[in-house]
Amino acid sequence: MTAHRPIAATHEATFPDSARTTFAAAYPDQPVALSHNLVGHSLLSLDALAMLAERMPASSVEYNLGKLPLGVRPEDTPSNGLTLGETIRTIETNGSWAVLKNVERDPAYAALLDAALADLEPIVAARTGPMLHREAFIFLTSPGSVTPFHMDPEHNILLQIMGSKVMTIFPARDEALVPAQKSEEFHGGGHRNLVWQDGFKALGAPYPLHPGDAVHVPVKAPHFVENGPAVSVSLSVTWRSERSVAEGELHSFNALLRRRKLPVGTVSDRPEKQSVRRLVYRVMRKLGA
Score class of each variant (00 low, 15 high):
residue 5 R to V: 11
residue 8 A to M: 01
residue 12 E to P: 09
residue 13 A to Y: 12
residue 14 T to I: 13
residue 16 P to I: 12
residue 30 Q to I: 01
residue 31 P to A: 08
residue 33 A to G: 13
residue 34 L to Q: 11
residue 35 S to W: 00
residue 36 H to S: 03
residue 42 S to Y: 11
residue 43 L to F: 13
residue 45 S to Q: 13
residue 46 L to T: 13
residue 48 A to T: 14
residue 49 L to E: 09
residue 49 L to P: 11
residue 50 A to W: 05
residue 52 L to F: 09
residue 55 R to V: 03
residue 55 R to T: 08
residue 57 P to K: 09
residue 58 A to F: 03
residue 60 S to M: 11
residue 60 S to Y: 00
residue 63 Y to V: 03
residue 63 Y to M: 04
residue 67 K to S: 13
residue 71 G to C: 05
residue 72 V to N: 04
residue 79 S to D: 15
residue 82 L to I: 07
residue 83 T to P: 09
residue 85 G to D: 12
residue 94 N to A: 07
residue 98 A to Q: 13
residue 101 K to I: 05
residue 109 Y to M: 07
residue 119 D to R: 10
residue 123 I to K: 00
residue 124 V to Y: 05
residue 124 V to M: 11
residue 127 R to L: 08
residue 127 R to M: 13
residue 128 T to V: 15
residue 129 G to M: 12
residue 134 R to A: 15
residue 137 F to P: 02
residue 138 I to P: 03
residue 139 F to N: 05
residue 141 T to C: 10
residue 141 T to Y: 02
residue 144 G to T: 11
residue 145 S to E: 02
residue 156 N to E: 08
residue 157 I to D: 01
residue 159 L to N: 02
residue 161 I to A: 07
residue 162 M to A: 13
residue 162 M to Y: 13
residue 166 V to P: 06
residue 170 F to M: 11
residue 170 F to Q: 07
residue 171 P to R: 06
residue 171 P to Y: 01
residue 174 D to C: 07
residue 177 L to C: 06
residue 178 V to H: 06
residue 179 P to L: 08
residue 180 A to V: 01
residue 185 E to I: 06
residue 187 H to F: 09
residue 188 G to R: 00
residue 191 H to M: 00
residue 196 W to R: 02
residue 199 G to P: 00
residue 200 F to P: 00
residue 205 A to C: 05
residue 207 Y to G: 03
residue 212 G to T: 02
residue 212 G to M: 08
residue 219 V to Y: 03
residue 223 H to C: 05
residue 228 G to F: 08
residue 229 P to N: 03
residue 230 A to V: 00
residue 230 A to E: 11
residue 234 S to W: 04
residue 235 L to M: 06
residue 239 W to A: 13
residue 240 R to L: 08
residue 241 S to E: 12
residue 245 V to C: 04
residue 246 A to H: 09
residue 247 E to G: 06
residue 251 H to R: 06
residue 258 R to W: 00
residue 265 G to L: 05
residue 267 V to H: 01
residue 269 D to V: 00
residue 269 D to G: 01
residue 273 K to T: 09
residue 283 V to N: 03
residue 283 V to M: 12
residue 284 M to D: 10
residue 285 R to L: 01
residue 288 G to A: 11
residue 288 G to W: 05
residue 289 A to V: 12
